[in-house]
Design a protein around this nucleic acid. Structure first.
Length: 378
RNA sequence: GCUGGAAUCGUGUAGUGGCUAUCACAGGAGACUGUAAAUCUCCCGCCUAACGGCAUCGUAGGUUCGAGUCCUACUUCCAGCA
């Protein structure tokens, strides 16, 4: 279904190339989050200019707005956005499970729209059908994460949600295969499906989940439910040692901290996605090689240097100064969000490609130690 | 000049006799990890590292157990009339 070629491998880490019907992704890669078929504050050409190879949208959001039939009618997610590149969709499981008043009944999830409170139902089958209408290149199986932000990480909860995730994965795969067969009959592109490994903070459950997914015919894997890279090291290692090498692995939602990317790559992750670069940009937190800065701070009012003079992004190279950005944020000018987002997204996308290069030429450790030493000032 | 009105944190305000003087904006800082996020949290009279302490509602008096709130004078501003 999905062509994945490993160019270089060293322990768990690897550099490769995913080929989708809409283009290649050189991995490790940072996938740009465009939840509602939009990368917040940025145009598609801006995303492409900064090196964004792929965009990840969310099935839940697109089902509510504009409705998946609109996207199907447009010719699929990429065409709808005017994006000439690979696309991912997340299943919506994560979002729906984090809504209040969610009920699971007979493999169906009953929830309320965050937009208007309407009572809606989703299931693995419905998510797969929606994702096929949206038509991204890589889909995620409908999974059941332990509630995000929930304090309930008890063993029982982890076991229960893992059981549900595995049931739903089987249902997702069956429906996905049926839909792909229909695409073939019509002479259309087929799509890829990633199974999503769960298991909470339990080594044996993570291993169990990895073994389960390794035995199934998915095109690749998502790894979900891990929020702190350093804490997740052992889980990542356990999971990636079990998952088959020849299929790509996506670390869902991770990448707010550069150390996450290094840790992920080191332990066998191929793709990442995270809302942090754009969200933090809108909130005035900008990445630099010597750590994060809050552009709203008083000291930047008359700082006429670029955000980071070593940064090669269009903003830093284009004569935009900290003082100017400081002014734009204070004045509430929308341009602030765009410029800050271009910078931050470039920073992580570019960092990930530099890491890729370091895997290829064997300098990963050197790059990591240099970069993290400066970034975290250790 | 006359008549009326108003003066409360950088700004705009709430408060008309009672206990820690309200809210917003501006200002200072922090957070943000499969985006209900241009959001959220904290600080924002002075002193103190902190616990705390001391102030304060234009100025000066007065009434009262008690005044931002009532009275008098003054100052400044606003509106109308000259």
């Amino acid at each position: 279904m999905l062509d994945f070629e490993i160019k270089k491998k060293n322990g768990l880490m690897r550099a490769g190339e995913i080929t989708t019907p809409h283009g290649k992704i050189m991995t490790p890669a940072f996938i740009v989050a465009g939840t509602k078929a939009a990368v917040k504050a940025m145009s598609v050409p801006q995303v492409q200019d900064l090196g964004g190879q792929a965009i990840l949208s969310n099935t839940y959001h697109l089902m509510l707005q504009p409705g998946v039939s609109v996207i199907a009618e447009a010719g699929g997610l990429a065409k709808f956005m005017g994006f000439d590149g690979a696309t991912f969709t997340d299943s919506g499981g994560f979002q729906i499970m984090s809504l209040p008043k969610v009920k699971i009944k007979n493999d169906e999830v009953i929830f309320r729209s965050h937009i208007n409170g309407e009572k809606l139902t989703i299931s693995p089958r419905i998510s797969m059908q929606a994702q096929h209408q949206i038509g991204a290149d890589i889909h995620m199986a409908f999974d059941c994460p332990i509630g995000y932000g929930s304090t309930d990480t008890a063993r029982e909860n982890a076991e229960k949600t893992l059981r549900i995730t595995h049931d739903w994965a089987a249902q997702s795969l069956a429906e996905h295969s049926r839909l792909n067969a229909e695409h073939l009959v019509r002479g259309e592109n087929t799509q890829a499906l990633f199974g999503v490994v769960q298991g909470g903070e339990f080594e044996d459950l993570r291993a169990k989940s990895a073994r389960f997914f390794a035995s199934m015919d998915f095109d690749g894997f998502g790894i979900g439910g891990m929020y702190v890279a350093e804490k997740s090291r052992k889980f990542l290692q356990i999971v990636d040692e079990i998952l088959p090498d020849e299929k790509p692995r996506h670390w869902l939602g991770m990448g707010a901290e550069p150390i996450d990317i290094f840790t992920g790559v080191e332990l066998g992750i191929d793709t990442f996605d995270c809302v942090a670069p754009t969200r933090q940009a809108r909130n005035g937190a900008l990445y630099t090689f010597s750590g994060r800065l809050n552009i709203g701070n008083a000291k930047y009012k008359t700082d006429f240097a670029p955000i980071d003079s070593e940064c090669q992004c269009a903003v830093c190279q284009g004569g935009i100064t900290r003082a100017y950005l400081s002014h734009l944020f204070r004045a509430g000018e929308l341009l602030a969000f765009t410029l800050a987002s271009i910078h931050n997204e470039f920073f992580v996308v570019n960092l990930t490609s530099r890491i890729r290069q370091s895997v290829l030429d064997g300098s990963f450790r050197e790059l990591r130690d240099n970069f993290l030493g400066k970034y975290y000032n250790t």
